[in-house]
């Protein structure tokens, strides 16, 4: 079975470490916040200028001046800091964020990522995605392995305009955990019940399949 969005978030959360500063993109990455282990301190960075993002407010505590990068009303945790957009991207560009999780349309074997622009459709902009992928060393891309039509999103060469060049090393899809090494996707884990054959069939770019590909394990 392909992973649900919640399971994808759970799998990404297994990559968190105590003391990590983490930037979570919109969509599945946002859900990762729900699976931070209780015995771990992780601080969430929101690129509009908040380090230490907390949960959503209540109707009583809602504040128009307190939002995240998705423009949702949020709260700040104890020990949070708030700063300008330039300061926020200094943290990101300067490589101070320990983990960045974001979605994409396509990733290729050279670590290129396309996530913001589909030509001839309305183009809304890249927001902070280009800065995030250029600045972070540790990035996890979350996306479905193939489109609804069955077209692979793990390619030899991205077909869409790029968000960043040569910056992606880890990809979690609904079918597999893959790492990009030496111009190929390396299949590290498969979703429970998903066959290696299915992953091979749905991966267009070069795929290295080790002898043993373990199933993902979910603790919760």
């Amino acid at each position: 079975m392909a992973l649900t969005r919640e399971q994808m978030a759970q799998r990404v959360a297994q990559e968190l470490q105590d003391g990590f500063y983490v930037n979570l993109g919109i969509g599945i990455p946002t859900l990762v916040a729900n699976y931070i282990p209780d015995d771990m301190e992780v601080m969430l960075q929101s690129e509009n200028g908040l380090l230490g993002m907390g949960e959503f407010p209540t109707e009583d505590t809602i504040d128009a001046d307190m939002i995240n990068a998705g423009k949702q009303t949020v709260t700040a945790i104890k020990g949070a800091s708030i700063f300008s957009s330039a300061e926020s991207f200094a943290m990101i560009r300067g490589g101070h964020v320990d983990l960045t999780v974001l979605g994409a349309f396509e990733v290729d074997v050279n670590g290129n990522i396309a996530s913001w622009m589909i030509p001839n459709k309305l183009i809304k902009g890249m927001g902070g995605a280009m800065d995030l992928v250029a600045g972070a060393d540790n990035i996890i891309v979350t996306m479905t392995h193939a489109s609804k039509k069955g077209e692979s999103k793990l390619l030899a060469d991205c077909s869409l305009p790029l968000t960043g060049k040569g910056c992606i090393k880890k990809v979690l899809t609904d079918l597999a955990w893959l790492e990009i090494e030496n111009g190929a996707f390396v299949l590290k884990e498969r979703a429970p019940g998903v066959s290696v054959e299915e992953i091979i069939e749905k991966t267009q770019g070069k795929l290295v399949v080790p002898d043993d590909v373990p199933e993902m394990v979910f603790t919760k």
């Binding site: 926020s88 991207f89 183009i123 902070g128």
Partner: peptide, 13 residues
């Protein structure tokens, strides 16, 4: 003119 968010902030800074 679409400009990456961090670049936009830094351009004004």
């Amino acid at each position: 003119e679409l400009t990456p968010q961090g670049t936009l902030a830094e351009k004004m800074r």
